[in-house]
Design a protein around this nucleic acid. Structure first.
Lengths: 166, 166
DNA sequence: ATAGTTTACTTAGCTTACCAAACTAAACGG
DNA sequence: CCGTTTAGTTTGGTAAGCTAAGTAAACTAT
């Protein structure tokens, strides 16, 4: 531990940035090619992972955005015929956002090229390499996640239902 | 998509998503606290890394956005007094976007959430852990980058091209 | 030198994503 | 029945991004 850690810190930061940048650019690109935006695609994918339907609240939760944003996204997906809104019969306040066949197909057809590529390459790696990468990624994720809640800044005037995030 | 938690591939994807998500949310949050948006912050940081000035074209290039977008961003930074536009005297078509003192300060004061938190935690780790994480991140970055502009890079074995970065 | 092209940047007009605050409607707890 | 909480939507706003169409300077070739 007498080493100066600067070097590796910087390098890992650069790698991280490359990942972020590639993701950002790529998802734009991809979504464009399928006629869906990244956010819309995410909705379809989450729905697919939930038997094709989910409530707006849950979606908002899982995407880390507000309900209002989900409403807007779902609106667009509805007009594109990708999902439909089905009122719940157990609780009539609730709506189920439901994948249509078209939506299901679209979600599958564009299963996030980023992911595709990653899966493909990852699975080429040897076992021990996979294990190392996984461990490293989880570590990094933990670092980032750790700061997620305490951040709640300012807005001290009165209590805010800060219940929103995650 | 299967319901069954598959394996390391899936887990690593999840970790990756966590990283992306945390970064996204955090950078919004942070930038807000300084009165700047993430994109605006990025401009300041790039400028800082370029002796405080750069052309819109270069900025666009480095950020992976169009010139028009840069114009809009710079407009906002100008009205906030963070940068100014200085016409080049060697080529009068060119503009130099130049950091003001305020811009320099702001860029420093909010040195990129990503960096902040990550650096602190990363440097707490032991040497060998740092090395592993770095290796893993670079690997992943290479996977993502590899698909960026041409169709078939096919990286075989350990060879990875780490081209194209400032 | 002057017309035509290329390069650098801005303008204009639009879409998407996001949010907070206000609103509607149903459910629940007395 | 009333009040509160919960689910969603609406409204109005900001920001980031794009394309396409300008303007102006700088090259290039007549």
């Amino acid at each position: 531990m007498t080493d100066i850690p600067r070097d590796r810190t910087d390098q890992s930061l650069i790698a991280l940035r490359r990942i972020l940048r590639a993701t950002e650019l790529y998802s734009r690109e991809l979504a464009q090619s399928v006629g869906l935006t990244p956010a819309q695609l995410r909705v379809l994918q989450i729905l697919a992972a939930h038997d094709g339907h989910d409530t707006p609240t849950d979606l908002a939760h899982q995407m880390g955005v507000s309900q209002a944003t989900v409403t807007a996204l779902v609106d667009k997906l509805v007009t594109r015929g990708m999902v439909s809104r089905v009122p719940s019969h157990t609780d009539r306040r609730q709506t189920h956002v439901t994948l249509t066949k078209a939506g299901e197909a679209a979600g599958k057809e564009a299963p996030d090229a980023l992911q595709q590529r990653y899966v493909r390459e990852f699975e080429k790696l040897e076992d021990w390499q996979q294990a190392l990468i996984l461990a490293a990624l989880e570590r990094v994720a933990a670092i980032f996640d750790s700061g997620r809640h305490d951040a709640a800044p300012v807005l001290t005037g009165g209590e805010i239902r800060a219940a929103r995030h995650e």
